Simulated assay, not measured.
Amino acid sequence: LIFINRYMDFYGNTILWIYKHVSTLQMRTKYVMDLLNINESINQESSMNIVQLSSVKINDFSVGDLFYDGAWQKPIKGMYWKHNNSLWANATHIDIKKCYQSAKKGFETWSNVSIKARIQILSRFMPLLKLTGKFVLATIVERWIKFPYFYESIQGHIENEMIEVLYTRKPLGVIILKEENENILFFRLMQTLIAGNSVIVMFDANLCNPSSYYDMFSTCKIPPGVINLLSHENTSTLEPKLCLGDYTTYANRYFLKGTSLDTYIIPFKKLTLPNIIINPFQ
Rank of each mutant, 00 (worst) to 15 (best):
F3K: 09
Y7T: 07
M8Y: 05
F10S: 05
Y11F: 09
Y11K: 12
N13D: 13
T14Y: 00
I15S: 09
K20T: 14
H21S: 15
L25E: 15
Q26W: 09
T29N: 14
K30S: 15
K30Y: 11
Y31H: 12
L35N: 08
L36T: 01
I38S: 06
S41L: 08
S47P: 05
I50Y: 03
I50V: 15
S54K: 10
S55N: 10
S55G: 00
K57R: 11
K57V: 05
S62L: 06
D65W: 00
D65A: 07
F67N: 03
F67D: 05
A71C: 04
Q73E: 01
K74P: 01
M79A: 01
W81V: 00
H83T: 00
H83S: 09
H83Q: 06
N84I: 06
T92W: 03
I94F: 01
K97G: 01
C99P: 02
Y100S: 01
S102C: 04
S102H: 03
K104N: 11
K104Y: 05
K104M: 15
K105D: 14
G106Y: 08
G106H: 12
G106P: 08
F107N: 07
F107S: 11
E108I: 07
W110N: 08
S111K: 10
K116L: 09
R118C: 04
I119P: 08
Q120N: 14
I121L: 14
L122K: 03
L122V: 12
R124V: 06
R124T: 10
L129M: 15
K130T: 13
T132P: 00
K134D: 14
K134L: 06
T139E: 13
K146S: 12
K146I: 00
K146A: 06
P148F: 05
P148T: 09
F150W: 13
S153H: 04
I154M: 12
I154W: 03
I154N: 13
Q155G: 02
G156N: 08
H157S: 10
E159M: 04
M162P: 01
I163A: 07
I163W: 05
V165F: 04
V165M: 07
K170W: 10
P171L: 06
L172G: 03
G173R: 03
I176F: 02
I176G: 03
E180H: 07
N183H: 13
I184F: 12
L185N: 06
F186R: 07
F187E: 11
R188F: 03
M190R: 10
Q191H: 15
T192M: 09
S198G: 08
S198W: 05
V199A: 09
V201M: 14
M202S: 02
A205Y: 06
N209V: 02
S212R: 13
Y213Q: 05
F217P: 04
S218Q: 10
P223I: 04
P223N: 05
V226A: 07
S231F: 04
H232L: 01
S236G: 01
E239P: 07
K241A: 12
T248K: 15
T249Y: 09
Y250F: 14
R253A: 12
F255L: 10
F255W: 09
K257Y: 07
T259E: 11
S260R: 09
I265V: 15
K270Q: 12
L271N: 10
L271M: 09
N279Q: 13
